[in-house]
């Protein structure tokens, strides 16, 4: 810090990063903002041609959002909805990750289970709703079960694919150096698995948000589902779009958060 040369570096560094920030602004954030603004303008334009009950303009959706957030109604409903989503997702991870890891690391398990998993996965999860009604009723348990069903197969498939693609050489290297089974697992297999486990978490989370609202619309209409049904009965498209908007934002937010965690926790893993 005291030497002349390092001082020059110290002066040069902030200037360089300043340019970086500016470049990132113009490269990433400006087009993003431009796209969002352009889209909103287009939406406003399209909405002016359609009757307001059918398709609300962004201005009216915004107005509704401000009102619903100020009264606390939407946030409270959201908080209630998130409960069954989190529980269902945790259960799905709890089942999906071990099953996926076993299928990914054992050829025998893979070839035995893969046809069954593929078969069940190819049935749309919503089609299980009548079953879930028979088994779990139409309240909390059924909602958790639907979130679970919607997320678990995506998680199994992602984890299986990831675990199968772990570079065999790194395990062979560990073996050559005489690493025990446990050491190989904790020091080699687990770090190599973290990237696709994060991917599974991301995909599972998005499927869970999807399951959360699907459950509330197909079982007893509560929380956000009730909000949408009420809005639909009142032909209030602004309220419906508000919920859709919040859900999309919620999904994007979770996705970006997990991506951010990924870059912080797994700096060695380069994403494309």
């Amino acid at each position: 810090m005291n030497g002349g040369s390092s001082g020059a570096v110290a002066i040069a560094a902030p200037r360089k990063s300043g340019i970086d920030v500016l470049q990132r602004m113009t490269r990433k954030i400006l087009p993003y903002a431009g796209s969002v603004i352009l889209g909103l303008l287009l939406w406003q334009f399209a909405a002016s041609f359609l009757p307001g009950v059918v398709f609300a303009s962004p201005a009216r959706v915004f107005e509704h959002l401000v009102g619903a957030f100020a009264s606390g109604e939407l946030p409270i409903r959201f908080a209630h909805s998130v409960q069954h989503m989190i529980l269902g997702m945790l259960l799905a991870l709890l089942v999906g990750i071990p099953v996926g890891m076993i299928m990914g690391r054992s050829e025998t398990a893979f070839h035995m289970l893969n046809p069954v998993v593929t078969a069940i996965f190819s049935i749309p999860s919503v089609a299980f709703v009548p079953f879930l009604i028979i088994w779990f009723g139409i309240f909390f348990e059924a909602r958790v079960a639907l979130v679970f069903v919607m997320a678990v197969f995506d998680i199994i498939i992602t984890v299986t694919a990831g675990a199968r693609n772990i570079e065999p050489r790194i395990i062979q290297a560990a073996k050559s150096f005489g690493a025990s089974r446990r050491l190989t697992f904790t020091r080699v297999l687990l770090p190599a698995s973290l990237p696709f486990l994060m991917t599974a978490l991301r995909i599972g989370a998005i499927r869970s948000v999807n399951g959360m609202i699907t459950a509330e619309l197909f079982f007893a209409a509560v929380n956000l589902g009730e909000y949408m049904e009420d809005a639909s009965a009142a032909f209030d498209s602004a309220a419906m779009l508000s919920v859709v908007f919040c859900l999309a934002l919620f999904g994007l937010l979770i996705q970006e958060l997990i991506k951010y965690a990924e870059t912080r926790l797994l700096p060695w893993h380069v994403r494309d």
Binding site: V126, I206, V209, N210, M240, V243, G251
Partner: peptide, 9 residues
């Protein structure tokens, strides 16, 4: 990321 079920109504 938008769930299509939410768009149905």
């Amino acid at each position: 990321v938008t769930s299509v079920a939410a768009l149905a109504p």
